[in-house]
Simulated scan of single mutants.
Amino acid sequence: MLPRIAMVSTYPPTRCGIATFARSLGDAMVMAGADIDIVALGADSTDGIRHVHGGPQDLPATAQVLSEYQVVVLQHEFGIYAGPDGADAVSLLSEVDAPVITVLHTVPPDPTSGQRRNLQALLDGSDAIVVLSHSADRVLRTTYSVRPHSVRVIPHGAPDMGRARSLPTTTERPRLLTWGLLSESKGIEWGIRAISLLDDMTPAPEYVVLGATHPKVKAHEGERYRHKLMDVADGLGISDRIVFLDTYLTTDLLTEVIGTATAYLLPYESRVQICSGVLVEAVVAGGPVIATRFPHAEELLGDGTGFLVDHTDPQEIADAFRAIVEDPASASEIRALSRAQSQGFLWDSVAESYLELAEELWRGQARTHRLADLVSPEPVGLLRAIS
C-alpha cells in the first residue's frame, strides 16, 4: 500500500518547465498505482487540481488541505513562490505536518542572501531533499548545510522517445534542432552563426528552433529575442535555412520533429546550469547531442554520449555538427550509448524512485523536521552558514 501524496507545484495550463515536470511525474506515479493530488501554485484553471494556492493569503486553507495527506512533495524554484526570493515556500513548509520531500530545480552556487536564507530553511525543514543531477548534489553539499542522508539524486525524467529513433529522417538537408521555451540565455544565436559556417556542405544544413517564448519573458519584452535572432540570420544571409516554429510543445509534436533531426543542439550560455530537462529528453531521444559545457551537460555527455563545446563558440558547434553528418558510423555509436544511458531517465523509472522514497518516509518516521517546532528563531543551517 502506498501513501496518499499531495504535490505542490505549478501545473498546466501554466506554461513553464516545472509545471510540465509535475504533470509528467504525477501521471507516472498514478500509472504506478499511487493516489496523488495536485496543489497548484497560482493556477488559472482547476482541471485535475485539488486546490489552488495563490499566495500567503491562502496559507490556512492550503495547510488544511495538505493535512489530509500522508506525504507532501514540494516542487521548488525561487520564482514560482510568492514573496522575496520565494519566501512563501518556507511559510508553507512550516505549516505541513506530513513528511515533506522537497524537489530542488535550482541550487544556486552563489546565492543572494535571501536565496540562501530561504533555501537553507527548506533544507532544514524537509524530511528529504531531491536534486535532479549529481552536479546539483555537489553544489548543494559544498554551498549549504545539509543532513547527509536526507539528500537523494533522482534524475529529471523524460517521455520514451523510442518512436523518434525509429522514424525516418524526412528532410533532405542535414537538420540541427533546438527546442524548449525561448529566452536570451539559450544562446540560439550561436547555433545560427554555426550554420553560416557550413555553407560548403552539400546540401547546406538548416537549423530548426522549436518552442514558444517563455511566458515571463514575453510578458516583459514581447518577442524581442526572437526578432533579434531573425535579424542575425538575415544579416548572415541564411534566413532560408533558419526555421522558427513558435508553438508550445506537446510530447507528440516533439517526438515528430525529433525524428526528423540529424542532431540536437543546446547552445546555452549558462555556465552553472545543474539540470536541463531538454538535455535529458535529447539523450533519451538518442542524440547525437551537441551542448555547451554547463555542469549537467558535462555530467551526461562527458563519457562520449555527445559533443561538448565551449560557450559562445560557433566554430566548435559547426565542427561537431560536421563530424556527425560526415561520420554516420560514429553517430550511430553515440546513439547506442544514449540508449544504454537513458533507461533510468524514463518517467516510469523516475516515478518508482519517488514512490520508494515516499513510502520510506511514511512508514519510517513521523514529521521530525517541522520548521515551526525548531527551537532556534533562525534555521539551524543558516546559523552555521553565517557563523
Rank of each mutant, 00 (worst) to 15 (best):
T312C: 11
P60S: 06
L254H: 11
G304V: 11
V272H: 09
P379I: 11
I324P: 05
A43F: 10
F244A: 02
S376F: 12
Y225C: 04
V284W: 05
D327P: 08
A28T: 15
R141S: 12
K186T: 01
P328A: 09
T106A: 13
G344L: 04
C16L: 08
L140C: 10
A285E: 00
R117F: 07
V380N: 13
L25G: 09
K218S: 12
T250H: 10
G33R: 06
L355K: 05
V52K: 02
L25C: 10
T102R: 11
L279N: 02
A164F: 09
V153L: 08
V90G: 00
R271G: 14
Y248K: 00
D97H: 14
R165M: 07
L25D: 09
V72A: 11
Q75I: 03
P108D: 12
G26Y: 06
S276Y: 09
L167R: 15
Y264M: 12
V350G: 14
E356W: 00
L59A: 09
A63D: 11
V90F: 03
G79S: 13
V8K: 03
E172P: 00
A219K: 04
P379R: 08
M31I: 03
D313N: 15
L140E: 07
R50E: 15
S183F: 14
R163C: 10
D303W: 01
G286S: 07
L177N: 02
V90S: 06
G302F: 13
S9A: 14
V278R: 00
A6G: 15
D137V: 08
I238Q: 01
M161R: 11
L279E: 02
Y264C: 01
A336H: 13
P155Q: 11
A331P: 00
P267D: 05
H105P: 04
E269Y: 03
S353Y: 01
H134G: 13
R50L: 14
